[in-house]
Design a protein around this nucleic acid. Structure first.
Lengths: 195, 195
DNA sequence: CGGTCTCTTGACGGAGTTCAAAGCTAGTGG
DNA sequence: CCACTAGCTTTGAACTCCGTCAAGAGACCG
C-alpha cells in the first residue's frame, strides 16, 4: 500500500533492491502523521526539524521575499520528499515555508534519526543520490527558466507534470514559473487558440 | 600546498578531521592534470567522464540553448568542484559545457573511481554533504533571482563574490545573473553614481 | 601596431508587470 | 440545500524593465 511508496522511492534512486530488514530498520527511524489542508510543515524564521516523505496529498514550498511576494520553489505529491534542507542541515532558522494544499499523510524523519539512519551506508547513499538528482534537475530547470519565454516554460511544465496542472492552483504554478497569475492566464488563453 | 585544498574542502563539509590514511586512499583514486586557458573540460553532447577539483585557476560551466545563447550555470575557482553531474551520473551525453577561463590545475575523478571512493563511507558522506550544500545554495539563488531586480542580484553577487567580479569577464557574470552584458553595464553605471 | 574580443552608450521595441474591476468557483454556515 | 463570502481566474489599459540593434571606445594578444 502506502508504505510501498517509500520502498519504490529508495530502490529507484539506489538502482537496486533493498533488503526488507534494511528498509524496516529505516522505517523505524520515521513516524507517520496526518495534517489538514493549509497546515504549515515549516515556516520562515522557524527551525525546520524534519524531512517529510509524502504518502498522500500535495504540498508546496515557497520563499517569501522582503516585499511579501511568495516565490514557489517546489511542489511535492505522494511519493516525494520535501523539507527546508537549509534549516534542517544547518540548524538555523528556516528560509522557506512549506504548506499542505490538501489533507496529507507523511512519514517524518528528524535530524537525529536522519543521521542515525545514515550510519547504514545504503541509506547514506540513498540520500546522496536523492539529492544528487534533485540538484541536477534544479540546475536544468534554472538554465531553462533563464533561457526560454514564459509560454515555453509553461507548456513544457504542463507536458511534464500534467497531474500538477490538475491539482495545483494556477497562481502557485505561475509563481513556480516566475511569472504573475495574470500573465499565466494570458498564456493559457493563447495556448487554447492554437489547438 | 595545493593538495591541502582538498583536505580543507573535505573537512569543511564533513565537519570533522579526516585521517591522513583515509585522505591518501581517496587521493589515490584521483589524478592531476593541467589545462591551458580556453580548454573544454566537458562539452554539450559529449559524455562527461570526470568530476574536477580545481587546484588553481578558474572555470565556468554553461548551458547552450536552441538559439545558441550561453547560459552560465556555475563558476569554480581553486578549492571548488565542477562537473556536468547529469552526464556523469547518468552516462548520457552532457548538457553543459565546462571551459577554463585561466590556465588550470585540477584533480580528476572518473566514474569508477568515484564509486570506489564512495565505498569508504566517509567519502560517500562527504559527497552527500557537498551536493546537499550545493543544492541548498542553488535553491536559494533560484528563489532570489526570481524575486529580485537585476540590480539587486548583481549587488548581492558582487558583495558575496568580490573575487569573481575581479577575475571573471563581465559578460559571463551577466549571463550568470540572467541578463545581457549591456544591461549589466548600465546597472554598474547606476551603482557608481550612488557611491 | 593591427585585429579581435570586451565594454559602453543610445534609441527603440516587446514581454511581462501593475493596477483595477468584473466573473467565476468552492467552501461555509444558516 | 441554497446563499453568501472569500479566494481564484480572467480581462483591459498603461507602464517598466530589460532586450535588441547598432556603433564606437577601450583592452588585450600575437
Amino acid at each position: 500500500m502506502n508504505s510501498d511508496l517509500l520502498k519504490i522511492n529508495i530502490e529507484r534512486f539506489i538502482g537496486q533492491d533493498i533488503f526488507d530488514q534494511e528498509l524496516q530498520s529505516f522505517k523505524n527511524h520515521m513516524f507517520s502523521r496526518s495534517f489538514d489542508k493549509k497546515t504549515f510543515l515549516a515556516e520562515t524564521g522557524k527551525d525546520c526539524k524534519y524531512v517529510y516523505f509524502i504518502l498522500k496529498g500535495a504540498c508546496v514550498s515557497y520563499y517569501v521575499n522582503d516585499k511579501g511576494d511568495k516565490i514557489v520553489i517546489q511542489f511535492a505529491l505522494e511519493g516525494n520528499w520535501i523539507s527546508d534542507l537549509y534549516s534542517f542541515f544547518s540548524n538555523k532558522p528556516g528560509i522557506y515555508t512549506i504548506e499542505t494544499l490538501e489533507p496529507v499523510e507523511v512519514l517524518m524523519l528528524n535530524r537525529e534519526s536522519f543521521e542515525k539512519a545514515c550510519d547504514r551506508q545504503i541509506i547514506d547513499r540513498f540520500f546522496r543520490k536523492l539529492i544528487q538528482n534533485a540538484y541536477v534537475d534544479l540546475k536544468f530547470r534554472f538554465a531553462k527558466s533563464k533561457s526560454e519565454e514564459a509560454s515555453v516554460c509553461y507548456n513544457d511544465f504542463s507536458k511534464q507534470n500534467p497531474e500538477l496542472v490538475q491539482r495545483i492552483p494556477q497562481y502557485l504554478i505561475a509563481s513556480y514559473l516566475g511569472i504573475k497569475p495574470q500573465s499565466l492566464s494570458r498564456i493559457r488563453k493563447e495556448t487554447f487558440k492554437k489547438d
